[in-house]
Computed example of a mutant assay.
Amino acid sequence: MHRVVLLSLLLLMAWLAPPRQADAQVRHCQTADGTRLYTDRQCADLGAREARDPPTGQATGNRLQACARSVPDLAYALDDAIRSGDANRIAGLYDWAGMGSSNANRVLDQLQRIAERPLVDVREARAGDEGGGSGAGPIFGLRVEQVLGDGYTPSRTVFGLRRRLGCWWVHL
């Protein structure tokens, strides 16, 4: 009888308890040579240590802005991240929600290639501006104009936009 009462009490408590979110944590690590990494693994597993100081970013007052609150802010941050040549900084602007490991590795490879190419321009991509003009339609993404390693062959990547939790993110 006591077991039934105890079990009923536990079930009632579980039903009344607020739902909890899964603890998915992105760690900010720094290697011995100063390279910053964002990962879900332990920093020590990558031969790095937990980064204690905040990364370079957009400061508002005396605090670091955690995410892009507007498309122009996102475009500026993407421009800055690509110019740094650091794929991890670009990855910090990417919407990884719901992505599996194999897709994430594919995207990281693409971001690395983007980070390695010289940047010409980052601008808003609007409906009707496929030819490089300034379309009058709504903004649907960010167009990244670069050149390949030979210094003159053009390369274009168009990132899509997602708004989640009050922030703007890019995706491929």
Score class of each variant (00 low, 15 high):
43 C>S: 05
113 R>L: 13
155 S>V: 06
162 R>Q: 14
127 A>H: 08
56 T>P: 11
154 P>R: 04
84 S>L: 05
33 D>N: 14
36 R>D: 15
83 R>Q: 13
82 I>V: 13
43 C>M: 07
154 P>I: 04
158 V>C: 05
74 L>K: 02
147 V>H: 01
111 L>P: 07
135 G>M: 05
52 R>S: 15
82 I>M: 06
105 N>I: 04
28 H>G: 02
112 Q>G: 12
131 G>E: 09
115 A>S: 14
131 G>C: 06
28 H>A: 01
141 G>A: 12
60 T>K: 01
69 R>W: 00
28 H>F: 04
105 N>A: 12
96 W>R: 08
103 N>I: 05
150 D>V: 05
88 N>I: 00
104 A>Q: 15
117 R>E: 09
77 A>E: 08
124 E>D: 09
32 A>T: 11
41 R>H: 14
159 F>E: 03
144 V>M: 06
109 D>M: 10
59 A>E: 02
140 F>Y: 13
29 C>H: 04
137 G>R: 11
58 Q>Y: 10
102 S>Q: 13
67 C>Q: 08
138 P>H: 11
103 N>V: 09
149 G>T: 11
72 P>D: 12
90 I>N: 04
129 D>T: 03
45 D>K: 00
110 Q>Y: 05
45 D>G: 09
160 G>K: 12
145 E>K: 01
74 L>C: 08
112 Q>C: 05
38 Y>I: 05
27 R>E: 01
37 L>W: 03
100 G>Y: 09
31 T>P: 02
40 D>V: 14
69 R>I: 00
150 D>E: 10
141 G>R: 06
79 D>P: 04
147 V>A: 05
31 T>R: 10
42 Q>L: 15
166 G>H: 05
133 G>R: 08
44 A>L: 11
88 N>C: 02
127 A>N: 05
91 A>L: 04
64 L>T: 03
31 T>S: 15
163 R>H: 09
43 C>G: 04
91 A>K: 02
85 G>Y: 11
45 D>E: 14
160 G>V: 01
153 T>Q: 06
